[in-house]
Design a protein around this nucleic acid. Structure first.
Length: 599
RNA sequence: GGCCCGGUGGUGUAGUCUGGCUUAACACACCGCCCUGUCAAGGCGGAGAUCGUGGGUUCAAAUCCCAUCCGGGUCGCCA
């Protein structure tokens, strides 16, 4: 071993000891006489002193040190002279007085400083990811991730779960997300697919009788990337036999609240996660993954607004749309600029616009509201009584700002849910230390797809409907509820799960309803349908995303890219490896692949 | 695929709207010299940028126009 102790582990109890350290030159402070080097390894930073009077030879070498050189330093730990301690670092009471030094490696001047406080272009960070990962910030993120994953493994192990690996080369199932395909060399013209999730595999493991399975699983989806979406992400895949939705939710609830309590100690979360119905959260928050750190509920105002006859709003209602409002408490004083930025916020997200009604707090009480207290582009189309009615319905008071948007329900919900988030940010209600977990339940089993003009499974087609809803399949499938539950937190979907169908006939009824022919069922799902015929136990599970969860646990993650060691850019590139890249004609030939000219 | 923001020495930014006062400014980093208690050390000096790329307009373009590439956000998409 090169070192007898790590930089960050030294403290005043080691005073007087002789140590050997290895690490990187974090910073150097050359006084001409004394030279101070902050030596950094993965545990932290310690100050090394090179004294020209005590060790002139070693001091001479130290004059050549530059940032990020790799050193092996021998020396004595000593308390710093009175008054020269550094309370900002854990090793600030002591220093190592160097007696020997060896340069293990030199470094070019790095393209950016290895420091947490610097903001560096993300492309450059990715091009030199191995340097970006040297920062304490990234070390902390990656180490915390390790801790969380280890905690999960220990937790589930202690509850009799078995971790089982499933293959990365699996079968393409064209529904859902786009698959990543891998050509088969031995079977020309055929392909494997990378798993979008081990869904069918874990169900098969339940049929195999393992009863409690989990896996830290890599999942692959060839869809556009975002701050919270990468081509490949890691999920905690869980499946259990002989359970109902409560068992699964309670397991996750205990696991997640324990992680917060034991690892992310600066985070605040409750032990019990509220359970909310899908219809209710869509109405109140406009999204199925609401941020519950604050209230700010949306209000449907379609009827009151329709009565006013204001054309710009009622036109949308005539076309089948809705009007939703949101009260921004105490924001009546918003400047024209503030308001304009909200309007364009809505417009850049596909909305027609945003109508505001500011109620001057001078009115005192809502009953005393007069026209002079109203600031709104639609005020001249409204009577005082109408404004009071709107305000009452929205539960707005003088001093508040009412925001209204009209249009198709889906769009308005999407946009207004984002306005809600934006207002909460502006009001400072989004403390990242608070983790507002909740389960969303009672999802519809199917969603109508306008474009394709057919029904789709809103979760996936293995999800069981409520037992008493099977009768609705032929009558009113849109009303069928699913045994499906999501874990949400701070406006993020963290996990999705369900109780599965474990009966072949029932599974085939769903597939048939979704438009599959017998032949297609057999071709795509033959393996799972077959397994369901051999004593498949009732089972269900859930799959929490690890990457998203990690961003909630750290202070230093702007996106999931900050909790993944080697992520990809929004266009799916890795600037470090410079991939995707072309391959040799020989490789293509072996794989029976021809690249078309016009691509 | 649509929309929005951004790209200026090694890094981070200013300058762009309103073309010329720019020999492109500032901070950090880098190089040299000075300096014995600093810790984002300090002082003095120095080097370093054809302003993402390609066209165009103009007497004149970092600045205006067109195209294109790259990064980020967002809608679609993500069972």
């Amino acid at each position: 071993m090169f070192k007898t102790i790590s930089c960050g582990d030294i403290n005043r109890s080691h005073s007087g000891e002789t140590v050997q350290l290895a690490g990187w030159v974090h910073r150097r402070r050359d006084h001409g006489g004394l030279i101070f080097i902050d030596l950094r390894d993965t545990t932290g930073i310690v100050q090394v002193v090179f004294d020209p009077l005590e060790t002139p030879g070693v001091h001479k070498i130290a004059e050549t040190f530059r940032s990020e050189w790799v050193l092996l330093v021998g020396g004595n730990v000593s308390l710093r002279p009175e008054g020269s301690g550094n309370p900002n670092i854990s090793t600030g009471e002591i220093e190592v007085r160097a007696t020997t030094v060896e340069i293990l490696n030199q470094s070019k001047t790095p393209p950016f400083e290895i420091a947490d406080e610097s903001t560096i272009d993300e492309l450059l960070r990715m091009q030199y990811r191995y340097l970006d990962l040297r920062t304490k910030k990234m070390h902390d993120n990656i180490k915390l991730r390790h801790k969380v994953v280890k905690y999960i493994r220990d937790f589930l192990d202690s509850r009799a779960f078995i971790e089982i690996e499933t293959p990365i080369l699996t079968k393409s199932t064209p529904e859902g997300a786009r698959d990543f395909l891998v050509p088969s060399r031995l079977n020309p013209g055929t392909f494997y697919a990378l798993p979008q999730s081990p869904q069918q595999l874990k169900q098969l493991l339940m049929v195999s009788g393992f009863e409690r399975y989990f896996q830290i699983a890599h999942c692959f989806r060839d869809e556009d990337l975002r701050g919270d979406r990468q081509y490949e992400h890691t999920q905690l895949d869980i499946e259990m036999s002989f359970v109902d939705e409560n068992d699964v939710m309670e397991l996750v609830e205990t696991l997640y609240s324990s992680i917060v309590k034991d690892i992310a100690v600066d985070r605040i979360a409750s032990d019990k996660f509220p359970r909310l119905k899908y219809d209710e959260v869509m109405e109140k928050y406009g999204t199925d993954k609401p941020d519950l750190r604050y209230e700010l509920e949306l209000v449907t105002l379609t009827d009151v607004i329709y009565k006013t006859g204001i054309r710009i709003l009622t036109a949308a209602i005539d076309n089948g749309g809705i009007v939703k409002g949101l009260v921004a408490p105490g924001c009546a004083e918003y400047s024209r600029k503030d308001l304009d930025s909200l309007v364009s916020f809505v417009q850049t997200r596909g909305g027609e616009g945003l109508v505001y009604i500011a109620l001057d707090k001078k009115a005192g009480d809502i009953k005393n509201l007069e026209m002079e207290h109203i600031r709104s582009p639609i005020s001249r189309h409204l009577t005082t009584e109408q404004i009071i009615e709107i305000a009452k319905r929205a539960d707005a008071n003088p001093g508040d700002l009412i925001l209204l948007a009209a249009g198709p329900a889906k769009l308005i919900n999407t946009v207004m849910s984002q306005v809600r988030q934006e207002i909460a940010d502006r009001l400072g209600l989004t403390n990242p230390k608070n983790l507002a977990f909740a389960f969303v339940t009672d999802f519809p089993l199917f969603e109508w797809d306008e474009d394709g003009n057919h029904w789709e499974a809103s979760h996936h087609l293995f999800t069981s409907p409520w037992e008493e809803h099977w009768g609705l399949l032929d009558q009113d499938p849109g009303k069928m509820k699913a045994r499906h539950y999501d874990l949400v937190c701070n406006g993020m979907e963290l996990a999705s799960g369900s109780i599965r169908i474990h009966n072949r006939q029932k599974q085939e009824r769903i597939m048939e309803f979704l438009g599959y022919t017998k032949h297609q069922m057999e071709d795509r799902f033959g393996q799972i349908l077959g397994a369901l015929e051999f004593g498949a136990p009732p089972h269900g599970g859930i799959a929490p995303g690890i990457d998203r969860f990690m961003t909630l646990l750290t202070d230093h993650a702007e996106s999931i890219r900050d909790v993944i060691a080697f992520p990809k850019t929004q266009s799916g590139a890795d600037p470090l490896f410079n991939t995707p890249s072309s391959v040799t004609p020989e490789q293509l030939k072996e794989l029976h692949i021809k690249v078309s000219e016009n691509s």
